[in-house]
Nucleic acid binder design. Structure first.
Length: 282
DNA sequence: CACCATGTTAGGAG
DNA sequence: ACTCCTAACATGGT
């Protein structure tokens, strides 16, 4: 489940696999992946999806850009927006290899096929609209790193830090895992209100976000294929996420898991004290 | 079988 | 009107 580092890894790989190569075939498994706009619903699929993508046959793969968890990919005459949703990833296979399990779409560039594999089908491609493709997103958490005061300004009014960090309109790229890890690095309780943080705490959080993303990007750079937690990936790579009942990797204290909305928030009871946090239900 | 899931958003409640 | 929260989306893993 892709957050900024996983999407960045996908961007780098797609660029390597397809850049300056010719799109020679499109392998359709599930027409539902091409949607009218970036939408997690297969019902938003468009009937013209095949014709749209196949109009790029014979063209060469262009640059792939990323903002937050969103991708923008030019292939000759078309510009695609893409999102990996909850379970999407891109993998490369030789044309002679079998279609990967849960593949939705394959784009063959010369001698290799880039497959969009997505069991849960929230991921999609869409023709880029006329407006700014980054509309609705805050600054990219990696490409436009904020310093403490700027981060504080983006988070004004946030009642609990963890959900606030997930709001893509404030800051684009963090998801449940990396938000939890960044708060742990900064030693901040996930339920703290923005108003309760000192300037030093904002500095620490800004640095922690960068450090967490750098750490994750580094991990993905080292492996050829990204593995998600749901596929048996190692929860050992995280300090608190998914470690409820275990020990904090810094102090050994129990890691707490608190329900928030329909999600889980993880934090260390000792390293991330509530201090003067407003009541938020954590 | 019951419960969990890393993203996003429509719609209802306040 | 605006903000907040939940449920839903589709599917697989534990």
């Amino acid at each position: 489940m892709p957050e900024l580092p996983e999407v960045e890894a996908a961007r780098i790989r797609i660029t390597e696999w397809t850049g300056e190569r010719e799109l020679v075939a499109v392998h359709w498994v599930d027409d539902g992946v091409v949607r009218s706009h970036l939408s997690s619903r297969p019902r938003d699929a468009i009937a013209t999806g095949r014709a749209w993508l196949e109009s790029a046959l014979g063209a060469r793969g262009g640059p792939v850009e990323r903002h937050g968890k969103r991708l923008r990919w030019r292939i000759g005459p078309i510009v695609a927006s893409a999102h990996l949703g909850m379970s999407g990833k891109w993998v490369r296979r030789a044309p002679t290899e079998a279609t990967p399990l849960h593949a939705r779409l394959g784009l063959q560039f010369d001698d290799a096929v880039a497959w969009l594999v997505d069991p849960r089908r929230f991921g999609c491609l869409a023709p880029a609209g006329p407006g700014d493709w980054r509309a609705g997103l805050g600054p990219d958490a990696w490409l436009e790193p904020l310093r403490g005061p700027e981060l504080a300004a983006r988070m004004v009014g946030v009642r609990a830090l963890h959900p606030g960090l997930l709001e893509q309109a404030r800051l684009a790229g963090l998801g449940n895992i990396h938000a939890a890890e960044a708060l742990w690095r900064a030693r901040l309780h996930p339920g703290r209100s923005a108003a309760s943080l000192s300037p030093a705490a904002w500095d620490a959080l800004a640095l922690a976000i960068r450090a967490q993303l750098a750490h994750a990007l580094d991990q993905f750079a080292a492996s050829e294929e990204v593995t998600y937690l749901s596929e048996g990936g190692d929860a050992d790579g995280f300090a608190v996420y998914g470690r409820a009942g275990g020990g904090c990797s810094r102090c050994g204290s129990p890691v707490e898991r608190a329900p928030w909305g329909g999600r889980s928030v993880f934090f260390c009871l000792m390293c991330q004290p509530r201090d003067g946090a407003a009541e938020t239900g954590y």
